[in-house]
Simulated scan of single mutants.
Amino acid sequence: MTPSAIILAGSRPGGDPFAESVGVPHKALISLDGSTLLERVVSALRAAGIKRISVSCNAGPVAELARALQVATISAENGPSGSVAAAFKELGAPMIVTTSDHALLRKEWVGELIDKTPETADLSVMLAERSAIERALPSARRTYLRFSDGDWSGCNLFYLRTPRAGKAIDIWATVEADRKRPWRIAARLGVSTLIQMLFRRLSLSEGVARLGDRIGINATLVSATDGLAAVDVDKLEDLEAVRQILLERRNDPSEN
């Protein structure tokens, strides 16, 4: 069964200073190579064979752009977890979750997430290991989760494969708040898990599996082959890096 997809494009309370600094009210409206970030994400999902695509957003220019791109809109809730919950209620499983600032999103990454998710899994999350990110973009400065099998960074790609994956949304807000303090997440899984993580005796795949067990689902890690999958546009430095990558692609015959 082909999954649907939700693109998170909600507005922050008080606006987005970064987006406003480059002359647009929302990051989804930033233009690269003549296409907005939202348009690039929609195009990548369509190229991956996903036909039912919705955008989680507030009323305004992002919603207008979504309609122009002929994709549905779902009202954004408070925070990404609330928006995912609303989308999952409407779209159901299986469902891909990504973000409107995933400027370099490629159909291959979406396919890799789907294809590498075991049939026994309810939920999978794509992350990239530090060496893969630095190989693809040496100048990248990311926040990493440190485990025994390396340092990892999120790729803003999730696959809610079965209805049971909805259980994970309930704790998404908590994980969201602690994503840069992973020891707090580990602490919720018990003292032994926390100790193993602090001493780097716990692999990320083991951590994801344990978190899934605590929730009551089968959760799995999908390691991104391409480190660029972890690159999004959160600040001007990211935007400039993405522009340089796109310029190099235009000048690379193998990309044309």
Rank of each mutant, 00 (worst) to 15 (best):
D226H: 10
D232T: 09
A209R: 05
Q244V: 14
D238F: 06
V233Y: 01
D238N: 15
L236S: 09
V233I: 05
S205G: 01
S203M: 03
V231P: 04
G227R: 14
A224V: 14
N218G: 03
V242R: 04
L211N: 05
G212Y: 00
T225H: 11
E237F: 11
A230C: 12
N218V: 04
T220V: 15
I217H: 05
R214Y: 04
D238G: 05
L204H: 10
T220L: 08
D238V: 13
G212A: 03
Q244L: 10
R210G: 03
L211P: 02
R214L: 10
V231L: 15
D234I: 06
S223A: 13
G227M: 09
G216Y: 03
K235H: 10
S203Y: 01
D234V: 07
D232Y: 10
L239C: 10
A219S: 01
S223N: 15
A230W: 08
D238Y: 12
I217R: 06
D213I: 05
L228N: 14
K235R: 15
T225N: 12
I215R: 04
T225Q: 13
V222N: 05
D234Q: 07
D238W: 11
V233W: 00
A230N: 08
D232Q: 08
E206H: 01
E237D: 15
A209S: 05
D234Y: 14
G212M: 03
T225K: 12
G216V: 06
A229M: 15
V222R: 07
